[in-house]
Design a protein around this nucleic acid. Structure first.
Length: 846
RNA sequence: GGGCGGAUAGCUCAAUUGGGAGAGCGCUGCCCUUACAAGGCAGAGGUCACAGGUUCGAUCCCUGUUCCGCCUACCA
């Protein structure tokens, strides 16, 4: 609508692990499995599922009225995007930023593939801290006390560490201990990094194959790595030299079952010193909440440090702006401490890694997994990385090439999205036009998963940042403030909400609640409130259509009626505010400006003001007013359209308009000749009158419908002129007859007078319940006197008078004057009430 | 353990250069007044979490405390 060349490209990633899980569950229900199907047939099934159900998000977007470029829809598994993935993989490898190695990685024993660090959620839980006796090899009567939360892993221990400067243990370094439950003896090493003297016993076991810190300690001390678990996190004792009865007790058991057995065995042998409750943060799979196990395996890693450096720079120097800014430090902190990124996943659905290994060169045939025939590539097999399958290996073997069975992390392809979707690696026109893009809108929860990686990849392969602004939107939570999740079952389906309240109401609610840095608790009352707002707009439109019959004449703004000039000026202010706030990503302020204007200025005031003109066909301004009415409402619909696309289009079509659709019309811009400070000031004066009159009605307890006589007094001649000019309007708006305009005066008999800044207003109180009035007035006076005392006290303070800015001083003095005058007037009214009631008493026979 | 954010009307949330605290919903009263009862008009309701400090003056700035979220971390 603003005439910019905008591209909103819709699309999806392939959600590797999640999608594979879903399809595998289907297969399970059918009594089969992916292994039984085989890789190719399985992938066909996944594609089928994707075609069928993958459109849900797209249809939700469409229902929400998202104006995407639907023709350009992209999917990370599309051929073009897959080509980009292969290109990037090969180039990262060439540049030494990609390597394969045996490392410890987070492993979900249920989902089976590797997880990256950030796919692991930490959850506080209470476990036990066991203290185990490790007898010294050369003197079994003495032992070292080792603290551990995972006693079953001791089968994989290859050393014990103490702090090199710990006097308790220093003399033991270099000696050996007998590893409980096994026939092995392991060394005692000194390690100041691993060991915290203060914690536990100050001595710690090292299990390099099953713990990240221990892995690194193992590297430092050249320790052997003994794997004692399989991919399902079931204990495998082969190679641990465990005692036969231990093997019998725990072989093949999952961790949870093995731990008590080990505890039992240790106790039986008098090797368990004690166990006590212990709080710790357990790593769990973010998807299925299974406890994650560190697992030793061959994986592909992206070396992230060199990529992160320019990505940090880009945010530091403002080429990428994160909004709200508060998240910037979050991003920088994470990037500065970034770990290498494990990108291989042991699943089938995804981009299969473009790496090949030559069995002939390796010398012996690769082992193949019995279940699915996947080759198990040895760590030392030489690798050929290429975009397509090589014809032959370096030594000319052509028929012994085996492709890496693993696929890439979904985020690997997502990271390329800003340019892969525009045709890269081809230098397309789209890429030239739209890269770098302007804004990425996303949730905080994927700032690291996605945003950080897009910036790294964009800088590496395009040489430019992928986007200028990153707008972090709020996360929508349920009414209790809980994050929505399928497993908790508290997910609010937007389709359902749209069904119930309408899409426009949902959209407007989201916009209104999008205060920066704050999550949205989706409260139904709020949606309902904005549903009512749409209803209000609809009814206003009906009213307008009813009154548009007849000539409409466009007149210069400054020659229109007072209400017309006023509403044009207000509309202009609203256009200014909405445009400004949208540019600042303040959707909350933009929507509240619209709400305030449409309901409280346009409907409550403007429409009410012009009713006399519309009903009286002979009215002076009728033709011009009808024009203004159509003009302002049409403009208002365009201004509101991005927030409420459906109702605005529907109404717009019924209004006088040009063009086929509101979407194709321009967004309203500020019109200099609509600004009218005079009209706004005059309106403010009328509002002041209105306020005083309402207050009087309230004090006198008069019913809303009662027509009253009012006198209004302008404090200057100029004000009185304005009041006289709008006398009829005031009478109409305030349900008043025979309004009289005069000069303020004291001692008016039988009248209740109130004062404002510019005007005073008086009305008769004879019809009122004087007792009630006395009470109300008394309350008012008390409030006023309190305020008067407060301001007086401030003004009596010489420091305040000396140091406060002059405008604050005058403002205080004006206020004091007004409040004391008001109090004076009310006391006067009180005296009159007393006088009247005594009159009444006297007139009655005793 | 570290970092960040929040604590304002019964509820959901606003309030940037420190100077009389706002909205929506809910509540109370009166109104089916020919656009709108999903509405109109009016009203009640707040020691701005707590304790100090800076200042003429603090919801706002500083310090500390409590409670609630989130992120992050290897304390075995």
């Amino acid at each position: 609508m603003q005439g910019r060349n905008a591209l909103w490209m819709p699309g999806m990633d392939h959600a590797g692990i999640a999608t594979q899980n879903v399809v595998e569950r289907q297969l399970q229900a059918e009594g089969t499995s992916r292994e039984a199907l085989g890789r190719d047939a399985f992938l066909k099934r996944v594609w089928q599922w994707k075609e069928k159900s993958g459109g849900t998000i797209m249809s939700q977007l469409k229902r929400l009225g998202a104006s995407c470029d639907w023709e350009r829809q992209r999917f990370t598994m599309d051929e073009g995007l897959s080509e980009a993935v292969r290109e990037v993989f090969v180039r990262l490898h060439e540049d030494g930023l990609l390597y394969r190695g045996e490392r410890l990685i987070n492993w979900c024993p249920r989902c089976l593939p590797a997880l990256s660090d950030i796919e692991v959620e930490h959850e506080e839980s209470t476990g036990k801290l066991y203290t185990v006796r490790y007898p010294l090899a050369d003197d079994p009567s003495h032992y070292l006390l080792i603290a551990t939360t995972r006693p079953e892993t001791l089968l994989g221990d290859t050393a014990v560490a103490v702090h090199p400067e710990d006097d308790r243990y220093r003399h033991l370094i270099g000696k050996r201990v007998r590893l409980p439950l096994t026939t092995r003896a392991i060394p005692i090493v000194g390690d100041s990094i691993l060991v915290d003297r203060e914690f536990g016993t100050g001595a710690v076991k090292i299990t390099p194959a099953h713990d990240f810190n221990d892995f690194e300690a193992g590297e430092r001390h050249g320790l052997r790595r003994i794997k004692m678990m399989d991919i399902h996190a079931h204990l495998r004792t082969e190679g641990t030299l465990a005692d036969p009865d231990v093997i019998q007790a725990v072989e093949g058991l999952p961790v949870a079952k093995a731990r008590p057995k080990i505890e039992h065995l240790l106790t039986d042998r008098g090797l368990l010193e004690k166990s006590e409750p212990h709080k710790m943060a357990l790593g769990k799979c973010y998807r299925c909440k299974t406890i994650v196990e560190p697992l030793l395996s061959d994986q592909w890693f992206v070396k992230t440090k060199p990529l992160a450096a320019p990505a940090i720079q880009a945010v530091e120097d403002g080429r990428v702006r994160i909004i709200p800014e508060a998240w910037t430090n979050n991003y920088l902190g994470w990037m500065r401490d970034i770990k290498d990124w494990c990108v291989s996943r042991q699943i089938w659905w995804g981009h299969q890694i473009p790496a090949w290994y030559c069995e002939a060169c390796y010398g012996t045939a690769f082992l193949r997994r019995a279940s699915d025939g996947a080759p198990l590539i040895p760590s030392d097999a030489s690798v050929i990385v290429a975009k397509t399958k090589p014809a032959a290996c370096a030594k000319g073997h052509s028929d012994a090439l085996v492709q890496d069975p693993d696929v890439l992390d979904t985020w690997f392809s997502s990271a390329l999205w800003p340019f892969s979707t525009l045709g890269w690696p081809q230098q397309t026109a789209e890429l030239k036009t739209f890269y770098p893009t302007s804004t990425l809108v996303t949730g905080l929860d994927i700032l690291f998963f996605w945003v950080a990686r897009m910036i790294m990849m964009g800088l590496k392969f395009m040489g430019e940042v992928p986007f200028r602004d990153v707008y972090i939107h709020a996360l929508v939570r349920d009414a209790e403030g809980q994050k929505m999740s399928k497993s908790k079952g508290n997910v609010i389906d937007p389709l359902h909400v749209m069904e119930q309240y309408g899409t426009d109401a949902l959209r407007f609610t989201m916009a209104a609640m999008a205060s920066p840095g704050r999550d949205v608790k989706l409260a139904e009352e709020r949606i309902e409130g904005y549903r009512n707002f749409t209803n209000k707009i609809w009814n206003a439109a009906r009213f307008i259509l009813m009154h548009l019959e007849g000539e409409r004449v466009a007149v210069r703004p400054d020659q229109r009626s007072f209400p017309d000039r006023w509403i044009l000026s207000r509309l202009n202010a609203t256009i200014r505010a909405v445009t400004h706030e949208l540019e600042q990503y303040r959707f909350d302020r933009a929507s509240s400006a619209l709400y305030q204007f449409i309901w409280h200025e346009y409907c409550d005031k403007y429409i009410e003001m012009i009713k006399p003109d519309l009903k009286d066909t002979a009215a002076e301004h009728a033709q011009a007013t009808r024009h203004t009415l159509a003009e302002t409402f049409e403009t208002m619909m365009r201004l509101l359209h991005p927030f409420m696309p459906f109702i605005t289009e529907a109404i717009w079509q019924t209004l006088p308009h040009e063009g086929a659709s509101i979407v194709r019309r321009s967004y309203p811009t500020v019109q200099p000749d609509w600004d009218d400070t005079e009209a706004e000031e005059e309106f403010a004066l009328l509002e002041e009158c209105r306020g005083l009159m309402n207050q009087e009605r309230a004090i006198l307890n008069y019913p809303a419908g009662k027509r009253l006589h009012f006198d209004v007094f302008g404090k200057t001649q100029e004000i009185r002129d304005v009041l006289n000019k709008h006398k009829a309007l005031i009478e109409h708006m305030e349900n008043v007859e025979n309004l009289r305009v005069g000069i303020p005066q004291d001692n008016i008999v039988h009248l209740l007078t109130l004062t404002g800044d510019s005007v005073e207003s008086a009305t008769t109180m004879e019809d009122a319940d004087l007792e009630k009035v006395r009470e109300n007035v008394g309350k008012q006076i008390a409030v006023l006197e309190k305020e008067v005392a407060r301001i007086t006290q401030k003004l009596d303070n010489p420091d305040f008078v000396a140091k406060a800015p002059p405008e604050v001083l005058t403002e205080h003095r004006d206020r004091l004057q007004r409040e004391s005058r008001m109090s004076h007037l009310l006391q006067q009214a009180l005296r009159q009430i007393d006088w009247s009631s005594s009159e009444r008493k006297h007139s009655q026979p005793s």
